[in-house]
């Protein structure tokens, strides 16, 4: 673990140390900082907070928000809320799998795109929708998908 990462983790821990029940909030901050929960940071948390490593992993693997693998540069989240499902988001997801050649929860070989399906983006009026990092693209058809992917591939 490099010094900068250690420093980041220490700052996060100090910010939350006085609060009760701080583990999940600390994990949120770690994920915000690193994009995922690196295993050596998890061990560092266990040592510093005197929490058994087993407890940390119990929590990490229970909550789907936390990631144990580094994500791609762009996270593509396909909305699987009911409205989006009815209006065809499964075919968006399938198209993305075909284009990117990955399954859900995987990152492309070049580390560019991470693909996942998510519960509900909360933009049912724009269904079917997907989000690339924080930007939502709505009212999509299957043929829009390739344009979105290539747009981000170009930007990179």
């Amino acid at each position: 673990m490099d010094q900068a990462a250690l420093e980041t983790a220490r700052t996060i821990i100090e910010k939350w140390r006085p609060k009760k029940g701080n583990l999940i909030m600390i994990l949120h901050d770690v994920q915000d900082a690193f994009g995922y929960i690196p295993p050596d940071i998890a061990r560092y948390l266990a040592r510093t907070l005197h929490i058994p490593l087993a407890r940390i992993y119990e929590v990490l693997t229970f909550y789907h928000y936390f990631k144990l693998q580094p994500p791609g540069k762009y996270k593509i989240s396909v909305c699987m809320g009911t409205a989006c499902y009815l209006k065809g988001s499964p075919s968006l997801l399938q198209e993305l799998k075909n284009i990117l050649n990955v399954e859900e929860g995987q990152t492309t070989k070049d580390g560019m795109f991470y693909l996942e399906s998510v519960r509900c983006l909360g933009c049912c009026g724009l269904s079917p929708a997907l989000a690339v990092n924080e930007t939502v693209h709505g009212t999509l058809t299957k043929s829009d998908v390739i344009d979105i992917v290539s747009q981000y591939a170009k930007e990179a």
């Binding site: 061990r43 087993a54 407890r55 992993y57």
Partner: peptide, 25 residues
């Protein structure tokens, strides 16, 4: 393992149908 012996070797990992008991990490 966790509460009585305070060893914390075993843990419940994952969730739902794929949850399992195993050592962490």
């Amino acid at each position: 393992c966790q509460e009585l012996q305070q060893v914390w070797a075993l843990s419940f990992l994952g969730r739902g149908f794929s949850s399992r008991f195993a050592p962490a990490a």
